[in-house]
């Protein structure tokens, strides 16, 4: 079902892994990057046609941290 590609290098004494082909396959580009034990899923999508009437490049970047990444439920105090 999946056509997975991986690339691993040792960088700054830790393993850096790029993986694509398994998750978020409908995005134009989707790569899971893992450095040490930190993992970020990055996706890139571009519309097929230009938006008419704008003279700037409509790029949006959203970086989001999920609290499950740290094994927590948001909002609570412990």
């Amino acid at each position: 079902m999946f056509e997975v590609y991986r690339k691993e290098i040792k960088w700054g004494g830790k393993l850096l892994t790029f993986e694509t082909g398994k998750i978020a396959r409908q995005a134009d580009g989707a790569v899971m990057v893992t450095y040490g034990g930190t993992t970020v899923l990055c996706t890139a999508v571009g519309a097929l046609t230009a938006k008419p009437g704008i003279d700037f490049f409509p790029l949006t970047v959203n970086y989001q941290e999920k609290t499950f990444a740290a094994g927590r439920i948001p909002g609570g105090f412990f």
Partner: peptide
């Protein structure tokens, strides 16, 4: 290139 483009980066694991 003036197409609407979006990059979303989602942190899935944090090793502290």
């Amino acid at each position: 290139y003036k197409n609407e483009t979006q990059v979303i980066a989602t942190v899935l694991a944090h090793d502290m």
